[in-house]
Amino acid sequence: MELIVQRRIKQVLKGDQNAFGEIVELYKDKVYQICYRMLWDRYEAEDAAQETFIKAFINIHTYDPGKKFATWLYRIATNLCIDRIRKKKPDYHLDAEVAGTEGLNMYSQVASAEKLPEEAVENLELKETIQAAIFKLPEKYRSVIVLKYIEELQLQEIAEILELPLGTVKTRVHRGREALRKYLRNV
């Protein structure tokens, strides 16, 4: 896959936007997922994911072909999400609760309309609880947890994405796991 990506990047460098479309197709789910787990809002996640790709296209000449493309792309995505979280900080937690409740309401409406079995409703609620727990994490723990357990990346790659020493990433993973344990132990 990396080989195809490198070839497409060469075409993008010449200005070919169709080639970039293929890159977007390959990575859109992963990038959207990072944004959604970080921001916990579908519209905001879509917006951030699109911004990630637009930024990648504009700055494609700064990408070093000797390194993994995904690492570079995910760095753009996490940085964008962290920026958004920091900008929103003063009222973000209020927002978050609203977003969370909205999600729950939406799901319960869906559930009542389609008469989902109780099990499925519980499953949806569990997913919401888990997402809420991830979202409660401070952003520096949230990013490492999302990259490690949702994107399933190696610690070394996470260190490269976040441009942090490996030791710092490990500490953050440990603390993030401990915090999540406290949120989820009684579920």
């Binding site: 990038v31 959207y32 994911a49 997913k127 949702i150």
Partner: peptide, 13 residues
């Protein structure tokens, strides 16, 4: 906790 978080994956754009 880890099992929970891992179960949350697989979203599509």
């Amino acid at each position: 906790t880890i099992a929970f978080v891992q179960s949350a994956s697989h979203l599509q754009a």
